[in-house]
Design a protein around this nucleic acid. Structure first.
Lengths: 168, 168
DNA sequence: ATATATTTTCAATTATTTTTGAAAATTTAG
DNA sequence: CTAAATTTTCAAAAATAATTGAAAATATAT
């Protein structure tokens, strides 16, 4: 297989995968492209390589920056802004976990707390089962929260060397 | 807050959350509805409670069954099929992990293995960096795979009592 | 076997999300 | 300051995904 073919395959399947994770195809593709590009790319480079419009590149790159996955890079002499992806995959993973936790898990846990305040007949079968269900989800959510928090703080090599042995 | 209000809130936010996870709103809503319903519901019950069409219910319930989150229940005397969600949240979580691993992580790892076979000048900067990147993703993917595998096999209470202490 | 109830399918419709591209805003150079 | 380059915005268009609803298929009762 040739390099360019491999890159294309990688970019495309990364994009396809993104759609299963609530991330839009283009954002995932741009991220993939930057991951396999040794040097920073300009908006025009990205437009050309992925055949997408300027506005699309702009919006999605901006999103990637807000996710902390990509950063702007000034190249001396160049007028255009350039972008690089953080190439440390462990950081990429923890960054994604951190953001999704903040954007999704935290609000859900907050909501569940609100739902707890149910002032109705506690002997009612439906009320009882509802409270139980919410309680269980909350418990699991809190556990997940703690684990993710710890994971985010952990060292990149820690996971492989310690956790895996302990968990077995 | 009244029970029905709480249920509605739960169902709606569960649905909204689903869209961030590549799951369609309705499927997530049906799942939420079944989670907070003590008794099995028929297609008509679901149609009525969520104001959605028969076809929609049918397809999404079928999907939930294929995910192993919901099962068909025959109620003696009743002609219509009824559906219940597995109420054990730990099982729900591991079931979702299991399915997503199978549907997404496994194929991605397979793809990465194929991309490894790159027959080009190994001194080429681009080739080198590409291989490195793929290698790192693969490593992380394999670690995640092992951890998820262990998690799926773990007992529901094991996570809280052991993993959390060890990981700290 | 026939009629009736129930479930499934799927083409057409509707809703949602993504993408484009050109205008507006901003930045940099001279 | 003015002009050129670059970035950003956003309404409209296109693409994608979800939903409907009625017809077809299947199952059950008499």
């Amino acid at each position: 297989m040739k390099l360019n073919e491999a890159k294309k395959k990688f970019i495309n399947s990364w994009g396809a995968l993104g759609t299963h994770w609530g991330i839009n195809r283009t954002m995932a593709q741009i991220h993939a492209l930057l991951l396999v590009s040794p040097d920073p790319l300009s908006q025009d480079d990205i437009m050309e390589q992925l055949s997408i419009s300027r506005g699309n590149v702009n919006m999605n790159v901006r999103d990637l920056v807000s996710w902390g996955l990509v950063e702007r890079k000034i190249i001396s002499g160049e007028r255009k802004e350039h972008f690089v992806a953080d190439k440390d995959i462990w950081k990429v993973a923890t960054q994604i976990i951190k953001e999704r936790k903040k954007r999704e898990l935290d609000p859900m846990l907050k909501l569940l707390t609100q739902l707890e305040i149910l002032d109705e007949d506690k002997k009612n079968k439906d009320v009882k089962q509802f409270k139980e269900m919410i309680g269980e989800i909350q418990q699991l959510g809190n556990q997940a929260d703690k684990i993710l928090e710890t994971l985010i703080k952990a060292e990149s090599n820690w996971l492989g060397s310690h956790l895996l042995k302990l968990i077995k």
